[in-house]
């Protein structure tokens, strides 16, 4: 499947996308080693607040979820929970080669290999790990994608929910979290 390039948004959606593009709140959930690239991206050297981006505390408040590196099956369950708690429109940016093809964990029994089978990734950042320059560049790309209406992975997730659920269940067997400390 290719990216949908035709633009069939109405005026309200275009205005809404302008606001969404210029005010992106990240979910502060660090799944892998790439999370250490974010403090320099946030602080004075690169300063992502110039782009209107900032960290938020909970998935309900956030617009973009950053998958910063490898995802173990255990984390993937929590990520799916968190992603489904986020409010539309929502975006996913995946960091590094681990999310693309497993990276150095290609043969691990606990980490997944191909993230976009499970949740709709809008943008990948290549590298192991991507430096803050690459992260800033990717955020600029994400902003232009949102402005053009191309970052609609969340809509694709709603439309192909069964396909994503099937992939999730194939790998995880069960998405529901059984946790002895919370039951």
């Amino acid at each position: 499947m290719v990216l949908e390039n035709q633009d069939n948004r109405n005026l309200w959606e275009k205005i809404g996308d302008y606001f969404s593009a210029n005010s992106i709140w990240m979910k502060w959930y660090c799944t892998g080693c790439g999370a250490i690239e974010l403090p320099p991206t946030m602080t004075s050297r690169f300063d992502m607040e110039r782009l209107g981006m900032g960290p938020m505390a909970t998935p309900r408040q956030a617009d973009v979820m950053l998958i910063t590196g490898y995802l173990s099956t255990k984390t993937l369950r929590r990520v799916i929970y968190s992603y489904e708690q986020m409010q539309d429109p929502k975006y996913i940016v995946a960091f590094g080669s681990c999310t693309i093809n497993g990276g150095v964990y290609y043969d691990s029994y606990a980490t997944i290999n191909q993230l976009d089978k499970y949740i709709p990734v809008d943008l990948y950042i290549a590298g192991c790990m991507p430096r803050p320059e690459a992260v800033m560049n990717a955020f600029a790309d994400l902003i232009s994608m949102i402005k053009k209406g191309q970052a609609n992975g969340w809509r694709h997730y709603q439309e192909n929910y069964e396909w994503y659920k099937k992939n999730q269940l194939d790998s995880l067997e069960e998405v529901i979290i059984h946790d002895e400390f919370h039951e």
Partner: peptide
């Protein structure tokens, strides 16, 4: 005697080509 590669191949689908499903590579 546990082979993680076999387990990983059975459970987690591998990317068999350069095609990326519905997203693009940004950054560098």
């Amino acid at each position: 005697d546990f082979d993680p590669q076999v387990y990983s191949d059975r459970k987690f689908e591998k990317r068999d080509s350069d095609k990326i499903y519905r997203s693009k590579i940004g950054g560098v």
